[in-house]
Amino acid sequence: MVENDRWGSLFAHLVLILGVALVIFPVYVAVIASTHPPGTFVRGVMPLLPGPNALENYRTVIFEGRSRAGTPPIGGMLWNSFVMAMAITVGKLSISILSAFAIVYFRFPFRMFFFWVIFLTLMLPVEVRIVPTFQVVADLGMLNSFAGLSIPLIASATATFLFRQFFMTVPEELMEAARVDGAGPMKFFKDILMPLSITNIAALFVIMFIYGWNQYLWPLLITTDPEYYTIVMGIQRMVTGGDSEPLWHLVMATVVLAALPPILVILFMQRLFVKGLTETEK
């Protein structure tokens, strides 16, 4: 710890407050904008105080959508985003924790080779391989489906790599003790390795969920059926779609609603990883 110094701590607080303000301000503007009637924005000035139309605006985006501009009510889009983000998160986590388990705890031929192959996929995010991936997904008939939305994004190595690093810090004697105690590899994985990884799983869950939730380019490319639109696409369509000026009050209401699920996931998972962090030990 740095020693207790009045001016130092004042300065530190100033910097922190400034940083928080910088991050919070756009969110604040979005929330405020979502409470105003349509006319407010025509003058090109963003209001800084709440308006009277909050309930009305949110009711519109949730129940009616903007059917004229081809934007369905956002409930369905939120659901699509949620399913996609969950599928990506759960898929990525289960595949990577299992492959990390295999790489760290089993001796098999070409072990390091496989590790490096997995590692290499780190350099190939979806944007880089988007054209061939699209071709594959199209050929498999997975356009306009949840499988098409999520599977290509599941294959990535970040989490494998992180789990591998974590498993290597787990003392080997733990595995040996479990062997002596009659636990086979999968039992060891389930009873000992998983509970010890819970902090890592929670943290990665949050990161992956937000990654999945924020996907834009890929869903835009492979969905043409409004039934599979995601919320991020929906926001974009609201802004550019239609012939009139964007209806900013509705766009902002959608934005605010779109930000809620990731926040809820963070709040929920936070309990797990704060617990993990304070209880951590070897």
Binding site: E173, L174, A177, A178, V180, D191, P195, K282
Partner: peptide
Amino acid sequence: DIAMVFQNYALYPH
């Protein structure tokens, strides 16, 4: 049918 005591105990921490 053996039991082992390890140098660093290897207790299951959780």
